[in-house]
């Protein structure tokens, strides 16, 4: 630090590099914790299953199997960063999925079907965002309306599952780009690209910083002259759009649209975001953390199926993990409040 203190103010300069790091990057701690848990899970599973777990095939499959959830979690991260919540994403995914399958079955060209799916998701997001921003409806309730609407519409489109024959859409899943035993599908690439774009937007654009500012203190953001209204609506539109995109990915993955898809998936997405270190009170968290959160979720799921345990354990373990993270976050927040 410069020795010449020109200022009149007693500067509270941190003394060690560690302290500097802490005062600058305290918000990253929960995400690091998620990363550590992920590593522990891998190491534990590897040790327990005697080397059968960390294989290129398994790890490639992790992304493939959870691509839809990665995309949902990205959209959810935007909303949660503004201190909102979007309960509609699972149903939006089901609605857009079945809608796409129906359109394709009717012979609509694939590009048009895909555009319709994405637009459908975004429109539901727009509805929720408008209710939240312009009618002061709590995000919880507004997105609840979105959930009802999307779920009902999914059944309106079709009461039963519709198979997808379109080779273009199926290609997203079947085409495997291989490097040795590693592989990635276009759906996986879409998921990673979504994360990359989101990280770019959140960290390097004014729009992204406005999202964080709103989550930090919405009133302040408004008084600072930021465009709070449009940014908040946009967060829900992004979440809805991601719902549509994951509908596409899931349809490609399962080769069919099914109106009962994604029941409770919004909870998985929220859990993944929270486990990834984003605070539900808004303003703190990273989209990369959400990616880690989804991987933690997916890894636990894989381990459970490897061990042949009942799937009901999945819900219990994710619940327990969520609890752990919430309690830890609560402790961190409580400590930082005490420091003030």
């Amino acid at each position: 630090m410069s020795a010449a203190m020109t200022g009149t103010v007693a500067a509270e300069r941190p003394t060690s590099t560690f302290q500097t790091f802490l005062s600058r990057r305290a918000g990253m701690m929960p995400t690091f914790a998620a990363l550590i848990i992920l590593v522990l899970l891998f190491v534990g599973a590897e040790a327990f299953l005697r080397g059968d777990f960390i294989t290129p095939g398994n790890i490639s499959a992790l992304l493939l199997d959870n691509a839809y959830l990665v995309i949902l979690a990205v959209g959810m991260t935007f909303v949660i960063l503004t201190a909102g919540i979007d309960l509609s994403v699972g149903s939006v995914m089901a609605f857009t999925g079945i809608l796409g399958a129906q359109l394709l079955a009717r012979g609509v060209p694939a590009w048009l079907a895909i555009v319709t799916m994405l637009a459908g998701g975004a429109v539901i997001g727009l509805l929720i965002g408008t209710l939240v921003q312009y009618f002061s409806v709590q995000p919880f309730i507004a997105s609840l309306a979105g959930l009802f609407l999307a779920r009902g519409l999914a059944y309106v489109v079709s009461l039963s599952s519709i198979k997808v024959e379109n080779t273009g859409v199926l290609w997203l899943q079947t085409n495997r780009i291989r490097v040795g035993d590693w592989y990635i599908t276009p759906t996986g690439l879409i998921a990673l690209l979504t994360v990359a774009v989101a990280a770019f937007v959140l960290h390097l654009t004014r729009f992204g910083r406005t999202i964080y500012a709103i989550g930090g203190n919405e009133q302040s953001a408004r008084l600072m002259g930021l465009d709070v209204g449009r940014t908040k609506v946009a967060a829900y539109v992004i979440s809805g759009f991601c719902g549509g995109l994951s509908g596409l990915v899931l349809t490609a993955y399962s080769g069919a649209g099914y109106p009962r898809n994604g029941i409770g998936t919004e909870l998985d997405a929220i859990a993944a975001v929270v486990i990834g270190g984003t605070l539900l009170t808004g303003g703190r968290g990273y989209v990369l953390g959400s990616l880690v959160g989804v991987f933690v979720y997916g890894t636990i799921k894989t381990i459970i199926s490897f061990m042949g345990a009942e799937q009901s354990w999945m819900q219990i373990i994710i619940g327990a993990l969520l609890l752990l993270f919430i309690v830890v976050q609560r402790a961190i927040v409580a400590r930082s409040e005490q420091r003030r």
């Binding site: 600058r24 918000g27 910083r209 964080y212 500012a213 989550g215 930090g216 203190n217 009133q219 302040s220 953001a221 008084l223 600072m224 303003g283 703190r284």
Partner: peptide, 8 residues
């Protein structure tokens, strides 16, 4: 103070 505590 009308600033955002979560930002730098």
């Amino acid at each position: 103070v009308n600033l955002c505590p979560n930002l730098t």
